[in-house]
């Protein structure tokens, strides 16, 4: 009988010791974002907050982008997940990731535009607007000269 109680005690102790054990398994997939600066450089090690659908009170997860500006998380419900990425320098982005039936439908972000394209298109718009303003100003001067 004593032996039985001793074995029972030892088994409880062993179970207690194992209670704080941690096991792990590899997982794949998930949802996420890649954050890039305007010049195409990755937003590395930026602070990330993930908010679950309909739960803006506190973040579901906090973390950091990796050196390539990427961040992945595992959504546990469908809906629009909100990700906020902040580099601590006033730059960052807020994007929604739409998850349906456990799969990512869209990240809601714009396409990454190469810097030369941005530069040319922006300068084109500025030239257009300046030309329009110049045209109006010149016409106004001509009118004033005509009246005089």
């Amino acid at each position: 009988m004593k032996l039985f109680y001793a074995v029972l005690l030892l088994s409880f102790l062993a179970a207690g010791l194992c209670a704080h054990g941690v096991s792990g398994r590899a997982i794949s997939g998930g949802a996420g974002l890649e954050a890039l600066y305007a010049d195409g450089e990755p937003l590395s090690f930026g602070e990330v907050k993930v908010y679950a659908p309909g739960d803006a009170a506190g973040p579901f997860q906090r973390g950091y982008t990796d050196r390539n500006g990427r961040f992945l998380f595992s959504p546990d419900s469908d809906g629009r997940w909100r990700l906020e990425i902040n580099d601590g320098m006033g730059h960052g982005l807020v994007r929604e990731v739409l998850v349906k039936k456990g799969a990512v439908i869209s990240s809601g972000g714009p396409a990454v535009i190469p810097v030369p394209v941005k530069l040319l298109s922006g300068l084109g718009v500025i030239a257009l607007l300046s030309g329009l303003w110049l045209h109006l100003a010149a016409r106004r001067r001509l009118k004033a000269a005509g009246k005089a």
Partner: peptide
């Protein structure tokens, strides 16, 4: 003024790395 706007727009696209991986 147009040239100045083009200058401001263009230089703001050029980023430099800052400590901590920021820009």
């Amino acid at each position: 003024l147009g040239a100045a706007a083009a200058w401001v727009f263009a230089v703001q696209l050029l980023a430099f790395p800052a400590p901590g991986g920021a820009s």
